[in-house]
Design a protein around this nucleic acid. Structure first.
Length: 485
RNA sequence: GCUCCUGUAGUCUAUAUGGGCGAGGACGUCACCCUCUCAAGGUGAAAACCAGGGUUCGAAUCCCUGCAGGAGCGCCA
C-alpha cells in the first residue's frame, strides 16, 4: 500500500438520501477517518432527468446533519474538482473520444426500439439479455450510410473476450466472464456521459484508492475496470473494491417507503439523533466485536475496519434504532438536550420561545430524559406545563369523578394549600401523610387521582416534580377544578 | 432464463487462521424485582448454527450438492 487512502461517497440524488445511502456514506467516512485518509463527496448527476438541485441540496444538508464531514466535495472544493459530474462534461467527452480513437469504443446506431425488440427475443430464447454486438465492426461505409440517414449514435465500449478478475475486500476473489458482460454504453447520442463512463473516469482522476459501495454495483465492476484499462491505468493503480451488503426492509424486501421509512429527513423530523442513526447503521453489516454496541462517532472511526464488514445482507429494525436513540438521549448533557429539544417544542407550538418558557423547559427536561426514545415525544410530555386552557383528557376523566376520587382531591387541596415551601419533597411529604398514612390509600390509587387532575393524563412525568414545576397556584387551581367536575 | 452474491434465535451480530460452542451479547418478547403512572434500572426465561453429503481425531467454522433469499443483465445509477 503506502498510498494515502482516498475514499468517496458518490450518490446520485434522484430523491432524498435513504438509509442504505447513509450506511454507505458512514462506512466510507469511517474508513477514511480510520486510516487518516481523505473523504471525498461527489455528486453523480449525469442523469439530468432524475437528479434535481433540490435533491442535491438535501443530500449535502443530510450529510452535514449527520456529522459526516467531507474533505473534498461540494461547498468545500478540493484539488480534483469540480465534484459535480454535471460540471465535468468536457472531461468525459475527452475520454470517450480517446476510447473511440483507440478502437476501445465504437459508435452504435441501434435504436432504442431495435434494442428492446432484440432483448425480448433473447429473453424468449432463454439467453441472457444484453447487447449483441451488432454495430461492433461496422465498416466506414456502413457508418457513413447510417450518418446519412440521420441516425443518432451512442458510444459503446467494446468488451474483449476473456474475464475480469478482482479481489473484493469483503467478498474475496470475484471473476466475471465477459460472455456475461455485454458491450455497454458510455455516452448518449447527445454525447452526454453515462454513469459507467463518469464513475470510472472520476475515480481515477480523483485518485480514489478504495471504492466502498453497495452490493448492487458488484456486477458493474468489470465495466469500470474495462474503462480503467482503456484509460491506460496500470492494474496496481486500480482502486480496491469493497461491496457492502444490502440494508433491507423488515420483510426482507428492498427498503422502500412501504416498509419502514427510508428518507433520512423523516428520521430527523421524528426526533432521532444523528449519532443514534449512525451508531445503529454502523451495526448493520459491521460490528466492533467484544459485545460492544453503543459507540460514539469517535470510537467508530477508531474501530472501523473493512475486514470486519460482513458480506450478508441486514434487515433494518426500527425497534433497535429506537432503543439506541433512547440511550443516546439519556447520555446527553442538559444543555445539549435543551438545544435539541427546543426546535421540537417550537415546531409543535407548545412554547413560543420566551426566556421564561425556556427556563421552565430546562428545569423539566431532566425528569423526562429517561422516559423518551425520540425527541418528538417531548411536546406531549411537557405540554401540561404550558397550556393556557387546561383540560383532562377524555379517557382519563372517569378517574377523578367518583366519590373516592373526590375525597382524595378535597384532602389534597386542603393540606397543600397550607404548604408554604413548594418543593417536590415537601409536596410528596404532605400528600403521603394525608393520603397514604391518614386515609390509608394505596399510593398508586391516590397519586393517580392527583396526577390526572394536575397533568390531565394517567401517564405523566413524576408527579411531585411535575407539581413543583407547575407551581402552587396552577396545581391547586387544577385540583379544585377537577373537584367541581 | 443466465451470471453473481448471501445463508447463526423474530432482528442485528460475536466467536481473529476448525477444538471451552453442552453457541455469547444486544433489540424485541415473556416473567419477576424496584416503583406515584410511564419509563429507566435489576434479575431470569423462551428463542439459532438452512438441508444432505464429504474432508478431519474433531466442523457452526473447510469442500461439494441441493434448497432458500437477494442483486445484476438499460441511451438508470
Amino acid at each position: 500500500m503506502g498510498k494515502k487512502v482516498r475514499v468517496r461517497f458518490a450518490p446520485s440524488p434522484t430523491g432524498d438520501l435513504h438509509v442504505g445511502n447513509i450506511r454507505t456514506a458512514l462506512f466510507d467516512w469511517a474508513y477514511a477517518r480510520h486510516t487518516g485518509g481523505t473523504f471525498i463527496f461527489r455528486i453523480e448527476d449525469t442523469d439530468t432527468t432524475r437528479v434535481t438541485d433540490e435533491y442535491i441540496a438535501a443530500a449535502i444538508d443530510t450529510l452535514r446533519w449527520l456529522g459526516l464531514q467531507w474533505d473534498e466535495g461540494p461547498e468545500v472544493g478540493g484539488e480534483f474538482g469540480p465534484y459535480l459530474q454535471s460540471q465535468r462534461l468536457e472531461i468525459y467527452a475527452h475520454w470517450a473520444q480517446k476510447f473511440l480513437d483507440q478502437g476501445d469504443a465504437y459508435y452504435c446506431f441501434c435504436t432504442a426500439e431495435e434494442l428492446e425488440a432484440r432483448r425480448e427475443a433473447q429473453k424468449s430464447a432463454n439467453v441472457a439479455p444484453g447487447y449483441d454486438g451488432k454495430c461492433r465492426n461496422l465498416s466506414t461505409q456502413e457508418i457513413a450510410d447510417f450518418r446519412d440517414q440521420g441516425r443518432p449514435a451512442v458510444i459503446r465500449m467494446r468488451m474483449p473476450e476473456g474475464e475480469t478478475k478482482f479481489v473484493d475486500r469483503i467478498r474475496g476473489e470475484i471473476v466475471f466472464d465477459h460472455k456475461y458482460v455485454p458491450d455497454f454504453v458510455l455516452a448518449r447520442a447527445d454525447e452526454s456521459p453515462l454513469y459507467t463512463l463518469a464513475v470510472a473516469v472520476d475515480d481515477i482522476l480523483m485518485k480514489v484508492t478504495h471504492v466502498l459501495r453497495g452490493e448492487d454495483l458488484l456486477s458493474s465492476t468489470p465495466r469500470q475496470i474495462r474503462v480503467y484499462q482503456a484509460m491506460g491505468v496500470k492494474e496496481e493503480d486500480f482502486p480496491t473494491f469493497a461491496h457492502l451488503p444490502f440494508v433491507m426492509g423488515q420483510d426482507n424486501a428492498k427498503l422502500s417507503k412501504r416498509n419502514g421509512e427510508v428518507s433520512i429527513a423523516w428520521y430527523r423530523d421524528k426526533g432521532f439523533l444523528p449519532e443514534a442513526i449512525c451508531n445503529y447503521l454502523a451495526l448493520l453489516g459491521w460490528s466492533p466485536g467484544d459485545d460492544v454496541e453503543n459507540i460514539t462517532m469517535q470510537q467508530l472511526t477508531e474501530l472501523f475496519t473493512v475486514e470486519r464488514v460482513n458480506s450478508s445482507p441486514a434487515r433494518f429494525d426500527m425497534k433497535k434504532l429506537e432503543s439506541i436513540n433512547g440511550d443516546k438521549i439519556r447520555a446527553l448533557t442538559l444543555d445539549d438536550f435543551l438545544s435539541r429539544a427546543l426546535p421540537f417544542l417550537l415546531e409543535s407550538r407548545v412554547i413560543s420561545g420566551t426566556d421564561k418558557e425556556i427556563a421552565l423547559v430546562k428545569a423539566a427536561l431532566p425528569i423526562i430524559q429517561e422516559r423518551i426514545t425520540r425527541l418528538d415525544e417531548i411536546s406531549g410530555m411537557l405540554k401540561f406545563l404550558f397550556v393556557k386552557t387546561f383540560s383532562i383528557e377524555e379517557s382519563s376523566l372517569s378517574k377523578v369523578t367518583d366519590s373516592a376520587a373526590k375525597s382524595v382531591l378535597r384532602r389534597s387541596l386542603e393540606d397543600l394549600t397550607a404548604l408554604t415551601s413548594w418543593t417536590h419533597t415537601n409536596i410528596e411529604e404532605v400528600l403521603r401523610a394525608a393520603l397514604i398514612e391518614d386515609l390509608g390509600l394505596k399510593p398508586r390509587i391516590a397519586f393517580g387521582v392527583v396526577r390526572v387532575s394536575v397533568t390531565g393524563s394517567t401517564i405523566s412525568p413524576p408527579l411531585f416534580e411535575s407539581m413543583e414545576l407547575l407551581g402552587k397556584d396552577s396545581s391547586l387551581a387544577r385540583i379544585s377544578a377537577a373537584l367541581s367536575l
